[in-house]
Computed example of a mutant assay.
Amino acid sequence: MEEGMEPGTVRPGGRTARVRAAVLQAAGDALAEHGFDGLDLADVARRAEVGKTTVYRRWATTTGLVADLLDDMAEQSSPRTDTGSLDGDLLANARLVVKTLTDPRQGALFKAVIAAATCDPRAARALHRFYATRIEEWAPCVTQAAERGEVPPGTDAAEVIRAVSAPLYYRFLVSGDGLDEGAADRAAGAAGAAARAGAYGS
């Protein structure tokens, strides 16, 4: 590991990359099954068929492992859909969020990593990086909409993308209301209407 780097932040190739991939897959499975409180490095090592010493040396703590898992999720996330219209793009974004959160494994995994972020600064920083990456991926659809004249010039693209997903995460984490395509359609429609009305002027 390079001097000054935190455990779990190395991006090596070859065998080490294969070990990292196996451990992160195992960590995701364990989180989805047992939540953050049930995450155990020895169990992850067993699932990944990797020596415990390797896992403890490279990640050191469960929060270090969660942080690296979030970084990997950001790297592997689905590319942005480009439909050619703001409404179509925001709808694609909203439906992707709903699809992810309602997936049995992915939904449980997101709840676990969000729980980790509430109690550990390193996990919180990783979660913030994850969402910053997703917003950066999708914000160009708003910029392009401004260039086409669909929204006012100077519309804050990141705020529009946040406005799409925020009500969906509220349903997922707080209210317990259902998440389906109808919820996705309403979130995307409301964000698009507000953007056209100039609500997100920078």
Results as ranks from 00 to 15, higher is better:
E3T: 08
E6A: 14
P7Y: 02
T9D: 15
G14M: 02
G14N: 00
T16Y: 09
V19Q: 14
A22R: 11
A22K: 15
L24P: 06
G28V: 03
L31H: 03
E33P: 04
G35E: 03
F36N: 00
D40C: 02
D40S: 06
V44N: 00
A45W: 06
R47K: 14
A48P: 09
E49P: 07
V50G: 11
T53S: 10
R57K: 07
L65R: 04
V66E: 05
V66M: 00
L69I: 07
L69C: 08
L70S: 11
L70G: 14
D71F: 02
M73F: 12
S77N: 15
S77I: 04
R80F: 02
T81D: 13
T83F: 05
T83M: 11
T83G: 06
G84P: 12
G84Y: 02
L86F: 03
D87Q: 09
L90N: 05
A92C: 10
V97Y: 08
V98L: 02
T102G: 15
T102V: 10
Q106K: 14
G107W: 05
A108M: 03
F110Y: 07
F110S: 05
A112L: 08
A112Q: 10
V113Y: 07
A116H: 13
P121N: 03
P121T: 09
A126R: 01
R129Q: 08
R129C: 08
A132I: 08
A132N: 15
T133P: 12
T133Q: 04
T133F: 02
E136K: 06
E136G: 13
E137D: 08
W138T: 06
V142S: 12
V142W: 10
T143H: 10
T143D: 11
A145P: 14
R148Q: 09
E150G: 06
V151L: 05
G154V: 07
G154Q: 05
D156A: 15
A157D: 15
A157Q: 11
E159R: 06
E159I: 04
V160G: 12
I161H: 00
R162Y: 15
R162E: 13
V164A: 07
V164I: 06
V164P: 01
S165P: 01
S165Q: 13
S165Y: 00
Y170C: 09
R171W: 03
F172Y: 10
V174Y: 14
G176T: 00
G176R: 12
D177F: 02
G178H: 10
A183Y: 06
A184P: 12
D185I: 03
A191S: 08
G192W: 01
A195Q: 07
Y200D: 01
Y200F: 09
